[in-house]
Amino acid sequence: MRVALALAVCLLLFAGSARAQAKPAATVTVYRCTDAAGKVSLQDAPCAKGQAQQAREMLRPVDASPRAAASLPTPAAPPAATDARTVYLAPPRPLYECVTPEGKRYTSDDGRGNPRWVPLWTLGYPTVRPRSVLGDNIGHPERVMRPPHREINWPVATGGGTWIRDDCVMLPPVEACARLRDRRSTLRTRFFNAQEKERDVLREQERALNARLDNDCDGR
């Protein structure tokens, strides 16, 4: 019986000690000590012998409960990177000015003038009369047509002709852009008086001209 009672007392003391360690006292005694030289100090133990002592009960400071770290707003995800696109302009297309034998001027996109059929003799090729079963140039041996301005040593055809093209020269870029704008103005004038079927063709031509002006002349 005594052993059981002693064991119970020990358990109570142990529990009280644990509670005391887990939960400190609500107040604490602070000692204000003044020595012979008048120096004042504060401490939690009684003052040394020979010092003036003042004791005061104060609330024991309690550590603040750890605060939950403030949740920072999640930064917004950057917008998905879009594929960078590079636009390449085509090199400016040349524009040519061509001249007919009569002196009329017009423009060409490929530098090839309009074709025309001319007799060979106009180009200086020698011509002869057709041969017959009786011989060459029967009855008129002296009438052989030989233009003097060109020497041709290879065989030629009698009475033939050939296609030739008008001469063309490339225009400077500034002049080419001005001619393209003039061409567009002409299309718009024709569009005003054109029938509906012709207007469809003129619309396509103007779209092509606008695209060319945007590429070659910065849209001007």
Rank of each mutant, 00 (worst) to 15 (best):
G139C: 08
M145L: 15
A15S: 10
P126Q: 03
K39Y: 00
T74L: 08
D200F: 10
H149I: 00
A22Y: 09
R179C: 05
G219S: 09
E175Q: 11
A90E: 07
R183E: 05
A37N: 05
H149E: 03
G113A: 14
D35P: 04
H140Y: 10
R2N: 07
S65E: 11
Q54G: 01
R32A: 10
P126S: 01
P172D: 12
D109Q: 11
P92K: 07
A90K: 09
G161A: 05
D200V: 12
D35T: 10
A8M: 07
M145F: 13
K197F: 00
Q43M: 12
L13D: 05
E142K: 12
D109A: 08
P115Q: 06
A8T: 01
L42M: 09
P75L: 09
V118K: 03
G16C: 13
G159E: 05
V201C: 00
T186Y: 04
A26T: 09
N137V: 03
R150S: 03
R129S: 15
P172T: 11
P92V: 01
R60V: 02
R179M: 04
S132A: 10
V144A: 11
D167E: 12
A70F: 02
Q43R: 15
T122E: 13
Y96W: 08
R112M: 11
G16H: 13
C98M: 09
A36P: 00
S71T: 14
C10M: 14
A76G: 08
R165A: 12
R181W: 03
R188I: 06
K104I: 05
R116M: 09
F191V: 03
A15R: 15
A157Y: 12
G16K: 09
F191L: 11
P147R: 02
V3I: 13
W163H: 07
T162V: 14
A81H: 03
R203V: 12
D136C: 08
R181V: 02
L202I: 12
D214M: 09
E175S: 10
S71K: 14
D136T: 08
A37W: 04
P173Y: 03
M145G: 08
Q205H: 06
D44L: 14
V174N: 01
S71N: 13
E206D: 14
T82L: 15
A194W: 03
G139R: 05
A176Y: 01
P66V: 15
R67S: 13
P148I: 01
A6F: 04
R179Q: 11
V133R: 07
K49I: 02
